[in-house]
Amino acid sequence: MPQTITYTTDIRKEVRRLCAEAYDRIFLLTDNTTEQLCRPLLGNIDGLEESIVIKAGDDNKTLEAVSKVWTELQQRKATRHSLLINLGGGMVTDLGGFAASTFKRGIDFINIPTTLLAMVDAAVGGKTGINFNDFKNEIGVFRDAKEVIIDTSFLRSLDSQNLHSGYAEMLKHSLLKDTAMWASHVTFALCKPNFVQLQEMVRQSIEVKRAVVAEDPTEKGIRKALNLGHTFGHALESLAMLQQRTGLHGYFVAWGLICELYLSCSKGFPTDKMRQTVRYIRENYGYFPFSCNDYEHLYQLMLHDKKNVGNVINFTLLRDAGDILIDQHVTKEEVFEAFDFLREG
C-alpha cells in the first residue's frame, strides 16, 4: 500500500483528528528547536501528552537519544496501542521512526515534517535510523509511518541554509524525473523563493519519491535511484563529522551530485546539463573544502556504504534526466577524478 500523505494548511485540525483515534496514549517527539518554534502551532489538544524532547542536530541522532525516547515511553506507560507523533526535521523523523519501530516490537508513528528536507525526503518512504560509530544511518529499519502530514506553512520559518538543504533533495528528484522538472528546478530563485510555487514543487517532489518507493519499498532495485548524489555525499558528510565540521545534509547531497553527474557524463549524460546543474549548485551551495590528502579516507568511507556488495562501490548514475542507471561501477581513479572536479571544477 502506498504511504498515506496528507496535505494541509491547518495542522492543529489534523492533530486533533489523530487524537480522536483509538490510541490509549499519544506522545509527541520534538527536538529543542521544534519544541520552541513549532510545538506552539499545535496549541493545547486534549489527549496529547507532554512532549518528549531530544537535542537538535544530526550529531544527536544517536543510540543515546533513542534510549532516552524508549525510557520516556516506558516510564509514561506507553503500550503497543500507543502512538508516537514525530514533529520536526529529518533527524526527528528518522530517530522517532526507529524508536517507535523497535519499542515493544513496534508502535504506530506519524511524521509531521517541519523542514523542507524532511518533507521531501526523510519523513517519506519508510526508512528510519540513527548514526553509529561516525557512520550516517548505520542502524535502522524499513517501516512506514502510518501517515505523513505535510503543512508547508512551516517552511516560512526556516532559515536560508535549511531551505537550501532540503532543496538539494528536490533537485535530485528532478534529475530522476525528466528534463522539464529538472529545468524548472535549476532556474528556481532559491535565494528569494516564491513560496506559492515552492508548495507545488514540494508536492511534485514527494510524488516522485512515492512512486519509486511504491515500486521498490526495501531498496532491492529501482529505489537505489534515490541514492543519486548520496554515495559521494555521505562520504563527505562522514568526513566532516570526523573532523568536527558542522554542515547540513542537503549541502553534502548537492556536492555529491556534482561528483556523480561528472561520472554520469561518461555514460552519456549531456555535458551542458551537467554544467548548468553544477553552476546552480556552486551559486547556491558554495564549495566543500578538502584536499587531495583526504581522497583515500573518503574512498574508504565510500567502500563502507550500505548499498555496496562485497568490496565494490555501487553508484546511481544517469544517461539523462529521467534515464537512470543503478548499480554502476567506476574505477578508483575515476572516483579521484570526480574529487578533483568537485574541488576545482
Score class of each variant (00 low, 15 high):
residue 145 A to Q: 00
residue 8 T to V: 08
residue 151 D to T: 05
residue 26 I to S: 08
residue 224 K to I: 01
residue 29 L to F: 07
residue 206 I to L: 08
residue 178 D to E: 12
residue 247 G to K: 02
residue 290 F to L: 10
residue 326 I to Q: 07
residue 319 R to V: 04
residue 16 R to W: 11
residue 38 C to F: 13
residue 37 L to C: 10
residue 273 K to T: 11
residue 169 E to D: 01
residue 161 Q to A: 13
residue 312 V to D: 12
residue 274 M to K: 12
residue 142 F to N: 00
residue 250 G to M: 08
residue 212 V to S: 06
residue 135 F to M: 15
residue 275 R to A: 15
residue 229 G to I: 04
residue 73 L to D: 03
residue 17 R to G: 06
residue 203 R to Q: 15
residue 274 M to Y: 15
residue 15 V to E: 03
residue 24 D to A: 03
residue 125 G to L: 00
residue 160 S to Y: 14
residue 107 I to A: 03
residue 308 N to F: 09
residue 239 L to D: 09
residue 237 E to P: 02
residue 46 D to Y: 14
residue 188 F to D: 04
residue 324 I to E: 04
residue 147 E to V: 07
residue 280 Y to S: 05
residue 313 I to Q: 07
residue 115 T to K: 07
residue 192 K to C: 12
residue 126 G to T: 01
residue 54 I to H: 08
residue 288 F to V: 10
residue 114 T to P: 02
residue 165 S to P: 09
residue 241 M to K: 15
residue 4 T to I: 11
residue 183 A to E: 14
residue 119 M to R: 01
residue 147 E to F: 00
residue 248 L to D: 07
residue 270 P to F: 08
residue 278 V to R: 12
residue 29 L to C: 08
residue 168 A to M: 08
residue 287 Y to M: 13
residue 201 M to P: 14
residue 54 I to S: 04
residue 92 V to G: 01
residue 163 L to Q: 14
residue 191 C to H: 15
residue 249 H to C: 05
residue 283 E to D: 15
residue 17 R to V: 14
residue 335 V to L: 11
residue 233 G to V: 05
residue 197 Q to M: 12
residue 11 I to G: 06
residue 249 H to T: 04
residue 305 D to P: 12
residue 60 N to Y: 14
residue 6 T to F: 06
residue 114 T to R: 02
residue 33 T to R: 10
residue 280 Y to T: 01
residue 115 T to N: 09
residue 333 E to A: 14
residue 233 G to H: 11
residue 83 L to R: 12
residue 118 A to W: 00
residue 321 A to H: 07
residue 307 K to N: 10
residue 184 S to H: 13
residue 226 L to G: 02
residue 242 L to W: 08
residue 340 D to T: 13
residue 308 N to W: 12
residue 219 E to H: 03
residue 19 C to Q: 11
residue 306 K to N: 07
residue 239 L to S: 05
residue 161 Q to D: 05
